[in-house]
Design a protein around this nucleic acid. Structure first.
Lengths: 153, 153
DNA sequence: TCGCAACAATTGCATACGCAACAAATTGCG
DNA sequence: CGCAATTTGTTGCGTATGCAATTGTTGCGA
């Protein structure tokens, strides 16, 4: 019934969370996307930029610039893919590991504080609901993209 | 315990919802913020730009440009505040009402589809949780701002 | 083997937004 | 009353990101 008001609430909460995270991560010279990238990367097996963009739900060009920045900070390194000269492999450096550890401690502490208002049962319910909503919205976006492509078959 | 994974899920869902909305609103030449502004405005009593910025959780300068755009589209009009010559009052035009009606129909239909996966009971729980989280995060941001201001008392 | 479609990454351009500096108007305090 | 502090809206600048075009690479089919 009141889907719409729920939704506005969701939207507002997203904004607030984003803003709060930004304030925490700024101390480590990272934005949210850069931080999420650091969480995925590791020192051993390198990620391809295209795979990163799919995982991070952003454009490849955005990943190019994100990797440029993290590389300039010395947190990651690009290396050519042994099997495909089109690809680059991105791995975490020692400095990257250190920066990630610091940022992660700060962010996780903030998140723990926020979510501590929920009981374990509520938390479990929340996860289940979010997962179902995610599936629905993913499908919606998928359908809309196809729709756009189908205008000239 | 697994607050962190919950949070990542929340974050991802926010991104997806935002993207899906963007696709819907693009048909009406509106972005999310512009649409939310149209929802607040009405033809009778005008909003001040500063009040809009507080309500929309964005900077005053952003509202200036948002109002510039909506005005150029003929959807709203600025008029001087009778009681304070610094202020402008923003009201909805007939074209604005029409555009809002169309966009709102499309967006609400999309939202209804998404939230239809939840039962009424789940929905009620979700709202309650989101509200509590919102309160927490608002307080966090508030505290962080004060902290920043208190560096030189 | 050649040609061509698909793919990886990059670059250029446009848009959206926050932050800081600013001018004009208003308020408040001595 | 008069001047300093505050408030309102605007503008300039920097950053983040999407989309489209481009370059180089791969692989497949005639």
């Amino acid at each position: 019934m009141d889907d719409y008001q729920d939704y506005r609430l969701f939207q507002e909460l997203s904004l607030l969370l984003d803003h709060a995270d930004r304030l925490v991560l700024r101390q480590f010279r990272l934005n949210t996307l850069q931080y999420n990238a650091l969480l995925l990367l590791n020192p051993d097996e390198g990620w391809r930029l295209t795979d990163l963009s799919e995982r991070l739900l952003c454009e490849r060009s955005t990943v190019t610039r994100l990797v440029d920045y993290l590389e300039s900070e010395g947190l990651i390194s690009r290396s050519p893919d042994p099997g495909d000269r089109r690809s680059q492999r991105v791995t975490l450096t020692a400095a990257g590991i250190a920066r990630r550890r610091e940022a992660q401690a700060a962010i996780e502490e903030a998140i723990r504080r926020r979510f501590s208002v929920l009981s374990r049962d509520e938390e479990r319910h929340l996860i289940a609901m979010l997962k179902r909503l995610r599936a629905i919205v993913s499908a919606e976006i998928e359908a809309t993209s196809h729709e756009a492509n189908n205008t000239a078959p």
